[in-house]
């Protein structure tokens, strides 16, 4: 479960203080196992909200609870373990360019301390799941944008995360691949994962109707 209570976010300003509010007074709850669209125009604050969800950013004020744990700046030591239960599909993929597709997908498992011998079945299954079997040894630069996107998705779900956060995951995919990706995400959701997907594609939302959050200028204007 994810719970925001009067959460606000300001980024540091160049002068060392805090800049204007990127997010203001957000209060909502995402039930465990839910699928939620995060909507809004560019600059509305979608990426900032997602950064709070995957703990790349801590709220400037308010209370944030992720996967049943209250996120507190004075208890940062607890955050890495929490992050390992969250899968993230970044808008710009954020693959490591010098690692093969296999090793990019295996990265979260290695960080979680999984033994080398037990990696292969899970990683191979994930690559097959996203339709990239046979591309294990390829470097990201040798793959198309869509293929890189799918590696990023495989990396996000390989640990069977309790919370999956995706930022514009269909941005580099054609309509067929986008529908296939959404099918994968809903499949994850049916297996119990809480899924939050940020998009500005109303068509996609229409094809996969689910509850949504809509942001405007950093404020929540619709929840339901």
């Amino acid at each position: 479960m994810v719970r925001f209570t009067a959460v606000g976010l300001r980024y540091p300003s160049p002068d060392g203080g805090l800049g204007p509010e990127a997010l203001s007074d957000l209060t909502f709850t995402l039930p465990e196992g839910s699928f939620t669209w995060l909507l809004g125009t560019s600059g509305a604050g979608k990426s900032s909200l997602l950064r709070l969800l995957y703990l790349a950013q801590l709220p400037t004020h308010g209370t944030l609870e992720v996967l049943g744990h209250q996120v507190r700046p004075d208890r940062r030591d607890a955050l890495p373990a929490l992050r390992r239960r969250i899968g993230v599909v970044f808008q710009d993929f954020r693959l490591l360019p010098y690692l093969s597709a296999f090793d990019n997908v295996a990265l979260p498992l290695r960080l979680a301390g999984r033994s080398e011998g037990s990696l292969r079945p899970d990683v191979t299954e994930m690559l097959r799941w996203v339709g990239l079997q046979g591309k294990e040894m390829s470097l990201p630069e040798q793959l198309s944008g869509g293929e890189q996107q799918r590696i990023a998705i495989a990396r996000a779900v390989v640990t069977r995360p309790a919370l999956l956060v995706a930022d514009e995951p269909t941005g580099n995919l054609d309509s067929h691949q986008a529908r296939r990706l959404l099918a994968l995400l809903t499949q994850m959701n049916r297996l119990g994962t809480t899924v939050v997907v940020a998009t500005h594609s109303e068509d996609l939302v229409a094809q996969f109707p689910s509850p949504s959050l809509r942001l405007e200028a950093g404020r929540l204007v619709h929840h339901g």
Partner: peptide
């Protein structure tokens, strides 16, 4: 920097 931030966001500890 970017690789560190990726590992950090994927749950790597500061010790790691």
């Amino acid at each position: 920097r970017q690789a560190i931030e990726i590992l950090h966001d994927l749950g790597a500890t500061q010790s790691d």
